[in-house]
Amino acid sequence: MTARPTKGGALYALPNALWLTLFFLAPLLIIVAYSFMKKGLYGGVEPEFSLHAYALLANAGIVKVAFRTLLVALAATALTILVALPVGYNMARSKNQTLKLFLVIVPFWTNFLIRIYAWIAILGNEGTINGFLRSVGLVSDPIHLMYNQGAVILVLVYMYLPYAVLPLFSTMDKFDFILLDAARDLGAGKLESIVKVMLPNVRSGLVTAVLFTFIPIFGAYAVPLLVGGKDGYMLGNVIADQVMKVRDWPFASSISMVVTFVSTVGVLLFLARQKRPGISKEQAAALAAEAAVAAGGGR
């Protein structure tokens, strides 16, 4: 038996610890601190303890946006998973896995914002769809496809689809498809065999996919800003407005704390419901960290 080296471990983790402290923990603590301070006159904070920023949360408008954000995030996550499941299945059974994997990854080469603008070019009043509908004479006035919740959900699904497809594909790739034959053989229908045999065996991928999409979507900022209009406004936009326009940093911080709290608690509840650990502790920690980042940063 060889003993595990115990001395080096902490040392090797040091750069990572420094990095996380500097760029993750410190900003997070700053936000926590700001949320308990008074707002400065032209932005910034007055270093004085106050719960005012939390009192502002009880505003009906904020609660409404918070619920809308939750609903949009749940709907977009559910749709993303529904689309990602057959895509992952197809990739896992495909002979051209490399090509298909490549196709899933290609959009990442284009800037996030440019991809959103591409959707504006598709959905806008002068966009591709309306142009086509007008040219075939189906409509005379453009139909409004943009600036509503539907557009936000559609673009969010598009943006976060790869984050769901990749973990699903990687677990499905390891799935023994003969099990589906066995289920069919024993009397299960096509869908039944997938639900009863395949899904339970790719659960870890499913859990990862749900978390990887729900958390960033919950903190989404750019998509609702650009395609959402007034109806599509989400918490991420309220935070940005408080920082940039209203210049109430403590309020922005307290809303951020809510987003962090909801995503972290959501993740933990979701993981606790998984009877068997579909996901490792390290993964859970990474995801919790991501939840915090999504809440703080958002894009």
């Binding site: 023994d176 034959d181 066995a182 053989d185």
Partner: peptide
């Protein structure tokens, strides 16, 4: 008909 698979195919 029912099949006994080579790899057992237990769930």
């Amino acid at each position: 008909t029912n099949t006994v698979f080579q790899s057992y195919a237990l769930f």
